[in-house]
Design a protein around this nucleic acid. Structure first.
Lengths: 252, 252
DNA sequence: AGACGGCATCTGGCATACCAGATACGAAAC
DNA sequence: GTTTCGTATCTGGTATGCCAGATGCCGTCT
């Protein structure tokens, strides 16, 4: 009998400051509901350095990443600004999302297991007796879970990575994506159709329904999203909204 | 009559070292045909600092970007390695490309001007009399131009940005994308069909043809791309291929 | 001869200092 | 009072140095 080898967990040394700062900033930006408050939000490297307790170097590297992902804009010797996407940019983001998710639906119809497809029903089981319109927060969560599940069932890691970031941008305007028109009812209907198409392994239908469902959101924003551009107009210097931005390493 | 104001060009101060290093490294990595040479390619921050004549700081920030885009892998205290994508990753990249380009074709059918669509024919006019198989290099260029044109005609800036990076990854295996089977002939046929669908403003058909055309490439890689994974196996320490990597600021 | 372990060295992560362009403010000129 | 211009200050970009983990060489022990 071999000696009882002690069980040691591998140390979490892989988390560099840069990656932790990156997650912290991304989390803080997403949580601040930038589309609810006018005025430009400005970040300061040295201030962040104080708040987070690390030097500017890893902060700059994290900001470099966030700039490429479209969350902030770095203006040399001017400042760092949280980006508010224009109406057109948001529509294009939704269109790109529709393209990737409809492809994911196509793959899911071909590859997903029967169990995984059946599990999709469970996401909305809680709303069969209750009116989704009266539980918008929970329904919104289930909605997001549904779309992420479609991507996951495609078993294409790259589609998942590419859509994750798009999701974050779209999630920022989630107040616009629900609670208007009869979008909730239509959403329930569309999801029903997509799951049914997956069950029947009808790749073409699943792809088309997924595409049209998300493009419907794009049309909705096209019609009701003009306020998104208004927010960027109100950038008078006085409205510099940099007070409410707080951040800490290792957010929840 | 106002005094003749002297005409001065705006200074190119917008190009930071970071962005120049980023472009230089990206260009160097793409140009080195990593899929033609086995063994891992390793980069050294200090060596690059010497070659490029800038300090490590902008180089590190550029490398951070390249890591996120999947071109290099940073291993703390171990090294910086040029990434060779696996067969599965390349297939998934092509699938994502197919998703975005087919959506672009749909939009192009709705938005593109008649002139722009007609111009697509011109890209292949030079090959009507000559056999494309005997001018593979030129045909490959025209092929790329065609796909980029489809994206451009969609007038969706975000689709363009997202596909640009995917293109680079796929371009690295371009030797696999042509000169096999009767892919060239099928390519001519497919392109013909796509342009015709655009002319008829048939969005559904254009989308489907564009998707199937690119997914055909994915299937081709699926069948003949096993060697891509072999390359990653040959990573014995002796094969460290770091000699041939040269880079300079402001590549052509 | 093989295995272990100490030590020199390499390398990416991080902290810090300095630089120059941009900005804000106020004094001076009109 | 308005405009102009110099200057102090702010801020991101860059250069540099130190740190610790990883690696590899080599001597020592068995």
């Amino acid at each position: 009998m071999p000696p009882p080898a002690i069980n040691v967990q591998p140390l979490d040394v892989g988390a560099t400051f840069r990656s932790r700062v990156y997650r912290a900033l991304k989390h803080a930006i997403v949580e601040m509901d930038i589309y609810d408050h006018p005025g430009e939000v400005r970040l300061d490297e040295r201030q962040l350095s104080d708040q987070l307790g690390v030097s500017r170097t890893p902060i700059r590297e994290a900001l470099t990443l966030l700039e490429q992902e479209g969350f902030v804009r770095l203006e040399p010797r001017r400042g760092i600004f949280v980006v508010r996407k224009t109406k057109t940019e948001i529509i294009e983001t939704i269109v790109a999302w529709a393209a990737l998710e409809s492809m994911a639906a196509r793959l899911a119809a071909q590859r997903a297991s029967d169990e995984d497809i059946q599990d999709l029903w469970k996401l909305f089981a809680a709303f069969e007796q209750r009116n989704p319109s009266e539980h918008l927060k929970e329904y919104s969560d289930a909605n997001i879970a549904f779309h992420k599940a479609i991507i996951r069932l495609s078993r294409a890691k790259m589609l998942q990575e590419m859509t994750d970031n798009l999701f974050i941008h779209i999630r920022a305007i989630r107040k616009l994506t629900i609670a208007q028109d009869n979008r909730v009812e239509r959403s329930v209907h569309d999801h029903h159709g997509i799951i049914t198409a997956l069950e029947r392994r009808d790749a073409d239908l699943a792809e088309r329904l997924a595409r049209d469902h998300t493009l419907g959101l794009a049309q909705h924003v096209e019609r009701h999203g003009d306020f998104l551009d208004w927010l960027n107009q109100l950038s008078d210097g006085r409205a510099r909204n940099d007070g409410g931005f707080t951040v800490s390493l290792d957010p929840p």
